[in-house]
Design a protein around this nucleic acid. Structure first.
Length: 301
DNA sequence: AATAGTGTCAACCGCCGCACT
DNA sequence: AAGTGCGGCGGTTGACACTAT
C-alpha cells in the first residue's frame, strides 16, 4: 500500500468505509482499509467507525440526564471513558471524554469542586453538609475506600470471568465475521457489573443534605435506578425515623463528600409529601445547572 | 473589519493487555 | 518464556468556529 492518508475524513472515504462494513460486517481492522479501498490505517478506520459512522451513535447535545450519569460515573470510575461510555451506549468514549474535558470539568472547577476527586477545593463556594459527624470521619473514609476497592476488584474479576467464559477471542470474532463486534454484550455485562458494584456500595448510603433541615435525607436503595436517574427518585427514608445504629451505618462522610459535592450541581430542593398527612417526608433536588448553564433548550431533546 | 483569545471536537499517538505462535 | 500482531484505551493536539476587543 502507498502512503497512508491522515487528517479529516472526506465524505467519499466515509461512504467507502460505511458501505464496506455494511456489506461485510466488522472484522480485521488491519486488512479492512485495503479491502475497502481506503488509504488509511486500520486504527484510523476503527476510530472513524466507532466515533462517527456507527449507526447507533446519537450525536448532538448531551441531555441533562446524560450529564448527570457522566458526573456520577466519573466520581466512581475516574477517567475510564470506555467504562463510562458503556452506560451511555449511544455515545462514544471520545465524545464523553471531550465533553468532560471541555465542559463539565470547567463547571466543576468554577464551582470550587476538584473534578478529579469530586471534592471541594480549599475554599469551597459550595454548601457543605449541614450535619457531618467528623469524629468518625477517618474510620468511615477507610470503610468507604475499602468498599470501593472491593467493588472494583469484584468488577475486574467478574468482567474477566465474563470475558473468558462467554467472549470469543478477538481472532475468533474476526473469523466468525461478527456483524456487530462493537461489544454491546460486553458493555452490557460491564454495565451491570458497575451498577451492581455501585448499588452494593452506595445503595442506602446516599445522603443528600437539605438546606434548612439539620437532618440529611437518606435515599433508600430504590432511589438509584439502573439509569442512575436521581432526578426521578422515588420516596425517601427520612433519617429521623432511623435508629442510631442505622444512622451511623448510613452516614458515611467520605462517601457523602465524593458524591455530594458533585451533587452540588443539584442545588434546588423539592419535597416529597405524605399524601395522607400532607407532611413533607423528604427532600430532593433538581439540577441547578438547568438554571445556571442554559439547559432549557436541551431538556427533552 | 481585523486580530487575538477561547472553545470545541475529530483525529492521532503511544502505550498496554491479550491472544497466538 | 519470549516475540509478534492486533485491538482498545486515554492523553493530547491541531484545525476550525466562535466571541471579544
Amino acid at each position: 500500500m502507498g502512503l497512508l492518508k491522515k487528517g479529516s475524513w472526506t465524505p467519499d472515504e466515509d461512504q467507502k468505509l460505511f458501505s464496506y462494513i455494511q456489506r461485510h460486517g466488522l472484522g480485521n481492522w488491519r486488512s479492512l482499509p485495503e479491502k475497502a479501498g481506503l488509504q488509511r490505517c486500520g486504527k484510523s478506520c476503527r476510530l472513524r467507525w466507532i466515533n462517527y459512522l456507527r449507526p447507533d451513535l446519537k450525536r448532538g447535545k448531551f441531555s441533562l440526564q446524560e450529564e448527570q450519569t457522566i458526573i456520577q460515573l466519573h466520581a466512581f470510575l475516574g477517567n475510564r471513558w470506555s467504562a463510562i461510555a458503556a452506560h451511555l451506549p449511544n455515545r462514544s468514549d471520545n465524545e464523553i471524554k471531550n465533553y468532560w474535558n471541555t465542559r463539565i470539568k470547567k463547571r466543576l472547577n468554577k464551582m470550587g469542586i476538584d473534578p478529579t476527586t469530586h471534592k471541594p477545593k480549599s475554599n469551597p463556594l459550595v454548601r457543605y453538609d449541614t450535619v457531618r459527624n467528623n469524629a468518625g470521619t477517618l474510620n468511615h473514609m477507610a470503610q468507604w475506600e475499602s468498599a470501593r476497592l472491593e467493588a472494583e476488584a469484584r468488577l475486574v474479576k467478574d468482567s474477566k470471568k465474563t470475558l473468558s467464559s462467554s467472549k470469543p477471542s478477538q481472532k475468533q470474532k474476526n473469523k466468525s465475521n461478527n456483524k456487530d463486534s462493537t461489544s454491546s454484550n460486553n458493555n452490557k455485562s460491564e454495565c451491570l457489573d458497575v451498577l451492581k458494584a455501585w448499588q452494593s456500595v452506595v445503595a442506602g448510603m446516599f445522603t443528600i443534605s437539605t438546606i434548612n433541615n439539620s437532618n440529611p435525607v437518606v435515599f433508600g436503595s430504590n432511589q438509584i435506578s439502573n439509569e442512575l436517574d436521581l432526578v426521578e427518585a422515588g420516596p425517601v427514608t427520612p433519617v429521623g425515623l432511623m435508629s442510631e445504629n442505622d444512622k451511623s451505618e448510613y452516614l458515611v462522610p467520605e462517601l457523602n463528600e465524593r458524591f455530594d459535592y458533585t451533587m452540588c450541581l443539584h442545588d434546588t430542593t423539592y419535597h416529597w409529601t405524605d399524601p395522607e398527612t400532607d407532611r413533607t417526608i423528604g427532600q430532593g433536588f433538581s439540577d441547578i445547572s438547568v438554571h445556571d448553564f442554559d439547559y432549557s433548550t436541551e431538556i427533552g431533546e
